Lab assay of single mutants.
Amino acid sequence: PQVPQCKALYAYDAQDTDELSFNANDIIDIIKEDPSGWWTGRLRGKQGLFPNNYVTKI
């Protein structure tokens, strides 16, 4: 099955070790969508939390 993905609308710099940094237009694999607004994703071999208001699902 296809892994859900999202595209970064803005760059995000991780504020903690469990967060994921990314650049605008990066494509992130979505591991888990949480109602809190912090999703778990994977990018370039690293997994971490990121704010879903920085991305749009594709």
Rank of each mutant, 00 (worst) to 15 (best):
Q2C: 09
F22I: 05
K57N: 10
D13P: 05
A24Q: 10
N52R: 11
Q47T: 14
S36G: 13
D26C: 00
V55P: 02
I27K: 08
A11E: 13
D18F: 08
Q15C: 08
E19C: 11
T40E: 08
N52P: 15
I58C: 04
I28L: 15
Y12E: 05
P1Q: 15
G37Y: 02
I27D: 03
E19M: 13
I27E: 05
I31Q: 04
E33D: 07
L20F: 01
A11C: 09
N25P: 01
A14E: 03
I31Y: 07
G41V: 01
N23F: 12
P35V: 12
I30K: 00
R42W: 13
I27L: 10
G45D: 12
W38L: 08
K46S: 12
T17E: 07
Q5A: 08
Y12F: 05
A24I: 13
D26E: 14
T40H: 07
A14S: 09
A11V: 07
R44Q: 12
Q47R: 11
I31G: 03
Q2N: 15
L49Y: 15
G48A: 09
D26Q: 07
G48R: 03
R42C: 15
Y10S: 09
Y54D: 00
R44P: 04
E33H: 02
G45I: 03
V55G: 00
D13C: 11
D34E: 15
N23G: 13
S21C: 08
T40K: 09
T40V: 15
N52L: 13
F22R: 00
N53P: 04
Q2T: 10
D13M: 10
T17K: 09
D18E: 15
S21I: 01
G45T: 05
L49C: 14
C6T: 02
F50Q: 00
N25Q: 13
K46L: 10
E19R: 09
N52I: 11
A24T: 14
Q15W: 05
E19A: 07
F50E: 01
I31L: 14
K57A: 06
Q15N: 15
K32F: 05
D34W: 12
Q15H: 07
G37K: 02
P35K: 14
V3F: 07
F22M: 04
I58N: 06
C6E: 02
Y10T: 08
P35A: 12
D26A: 04
Y12G: 00
I30D: 03
N53D: 14
R44I: 02
I31V: 13
D16A: 13
C6A: 15
L20N: 02
A11Q: 15
A24W: 04
D29I: 06
L9F: 02
I31C: 12
F50D: 01
Q15T: 13
A8F: 03
V55S: 02
G45V: 02
W39I: 09
R44S: 12
S36H: 11
Q2M: 15
P51L: 08
D18T: 11
R44C: 10
N52Q: 09
K32T: 09
Q5P: 02
F50R: 00
A11F: 05
T40D: 05
S36P: 01
N23Q: 14
W39Y: 12
K57D: 06
D16K: 12
I27M: 10
K57T: 05
K46Y: 05
A14W: 00
G37E: 04
E19G: 14
Q15L: 09
D13I: 12
L43T: 11
S21R: 03
T56A: 12
A8V: 03
D18L: 12
I27C: 07
N52E: 15
D34K: 04
P51T: 00
S21F: 00
Q2I: 09
K46P: 03
L9D: 04
A14N: 04
F22T: 02
D26V: 01
R44E: 06
W39K: 03
A24H: 13
Y54C: 12
T17M: 13
Y54F: 08
K32V: 11
N25V: 02
D34P: 10
N25S: 12
K57M: 06
G41N: 01
K7M: 11
C6W: 03
E19L: 05
E33A: 08
D13L: 09
Q5E: 04
E33K: 05
T17R: 11
D16I: 04
I28V: 04
P35W: 08
G41H: 01
Q15F: 06
Y10F: 10
Y10A: 09
L49F: 12
D34R: 09
G41F: 02
T56H: 15
N23M: 14
F22K: 02
F22C: 01
L49I: 08
K57H: 07
N52C: 04
D18H: 07
Q2R: 06
P35M: 12
N23P: 02
D16E: 11
I27N: 08
N53E: 12
F22Y: 03
G48F: 03
D34Q: 05
Y10W: 11
K32W: 08
G45S: 12
A24K: 13
D16T: 14
L9W: 03
Q5Y: 14
L43M: 15
Q2P: 13
N53C: 14
A11N: 15
G48D: 01
W38M: 14
R42P: 01
I30E: 01
G41Q: 02
G41Y: 01
V55W: 03
I58V: 13
K57S: 06
Q47W: 11
F50T: 00
Q5M: 13
F50A: 01
P51K: 09
K7G: 00
Q5I: 12
P1T: 15
K57R: 10
K57V: 07
A11H: 14
S36R: 12
C6L: 01
E19N: 07
G45N: 15
G41L: 04
G45R: 06
D26M: 01
D29Y: 07
